[in-house]
């Protein structure tokens, strides 16, 4: 299956690709005011982002230091779902829905509206019943929180400062011509 995919990639000529792009542009030019939606996310819906934010906040909760939500973990995940993590889109769409459904069934509320205790209780269960999705979210949350700010998370290097790692470390270079006092 991936073999065939590789072959199709190959067959695409640049000209055809260009025409395809123009067609896309044309088709969408009318709806250039894609406005109205005004959501800051590219892949996630506002509801999904709320749920994901609430989950990530239980994975790395706010205490004296910022938690996952304030560190922009959702921004990280949303950006990767449009990049290298495109392959996890379906997993997220289904996984987040399942969590909200489980929350509704148990507490008659959306996950984002649960108390910390309720949320932890649900997530602990989920860790056993849906381990693949849960572990994925844990890993991605850790990446968004502890990873490089350039990828959309770890806003203002909040986790690095928490750990005491100098952000943008001060490093001079050895000079061939040394100043006289060195």
């Amino acid at each position: 299956m991936p073999v065939r995919l590789l072959v199709t990639n190959r067959a695409k000529t640049p000209r055809r690709k260009f025409l395809g792009l123009v067609a896309t542009a044309a088709a969408s030019a009318a709806t250039i005011s894609c406005g109205g939606s005004r959501r800051p996310w590219r892949f996630l819906s506002t509801d999904e982002a709320l749920t994901l934010s609430a989950i990530s906040e239980r994975i790395i909760p706010t205490d004296q230091d910022a938690g996952a939500a304030a560190a922009g973990v959702v921004a990280y995940i949303d950006r990767q779902l449009n990049g290298p993590y495109r392959r996890f889109r379906k997993t997220y769409r289904e996984g987040l829905l399942a969590i909200d459904n489980a929350s509704a069934a148990r507490f008659s509320r959306r996950f984002a509206e649960l108390t910390a205790e309720q949320a932890d209780q649900l997530l602990n269960e989920l860790e056993g019943t849906k381990p693949r999705f849960f572990q994925l979210v844990v890993a991605h949350t850790m990446q968004g929180y502890y990873g490089d700010p350039r990828h959309g998370g770890n806003t203002d290097a909040v986790s690095w400062r928490m750990l005491g790692v100098p952000t943008v470390p001060i490093r001079g270079r050895w000079k061939y011509e040394k100043p006289p006092w060195a």
Binding site: I170, G172, R173, W181
Partner: peptide
């Protein structure tokens, strides 16, 4: 200023570009 006029990792005054 220190980001570029930076000392070496030894943090010695006058080292590197300090």
């Amino acid at each position: 200023c220190y980001q570029c006029h930076a000392p070496l990792a030894t943090n010695q005054v006058g080292s590197g570009d300090d």
